[in-house]
């Protein structure tokens, strides 16, 4: 049986070139679930709005307005109701960090 471990000796400390390991805080997983519709890092490819077209303050207001019903939506009204205002703000901060 061949062993996959043959690939290991070529490693020359390359982990050092990688970014420092990000801690998986709650905001990461909670916020990253938005990427299913809006793309990794909020860089939407299609009809879903990308996050880079608005400022953090604008996005926070939009999400709060979807949640309260002040802003009309097809689906974001249903989704934002699953979060507190503080959580929505934290999601925006994660994408805008």
């Amino acid at each position: 049986m061949k062993s996959y471990l043959v690939a290991i000796p070529v490693c020359l400390g390359l982990a050092l070139v990688a970014a420092p390991a990000a801690r998986a805080g709650s905001a990461n997983v909670m916020a990253d679930s938005c990427a299913g519709c809006h793309g990794t890092g909020g860089q939407s490819l299609g009809a879903m709005p990308a996050f880079n077209t608005k400022s953090a303050d604008e996005l926070k207001k939009m999400l709060r307005d979807y949640r309260s019903g002040a802003r009309e939506a097809t689906i974001m009204d249903r989704i934002t109701k699953g979060y507190s205002e503080a959580q929505l703000d934290a999601i925006v901060d994660y994408y805008k960090k």
């Binding site: 990427a35 299913g36 519709c37 809006h38 793309g39 990794t40 860089q43 939407s44 490819l45 299609g46 009809a47 879903m48 097809t74 689906i75 249903r78 989704i79 934002t80 109701k81 699953g82 979060y83």
Partner: peptide, 30 residues
């Protein structure tokens, strides 16, 4: 939270959701 699209919505609403379906697919594949 959550739930389904409204019943009795007009053509524009259903069309928008069809466009978002395509947008969803592009984004989730990425």
């Amino acid at each position: 939270a959550g739930g389904v699209s409204p019943s009795g919505a007009n053509y524009q609403f259903r069309k928008k959701e069809a466009d978002f379906a395509g947008g969803w697919y592009a984004s989730i594949c990425q």
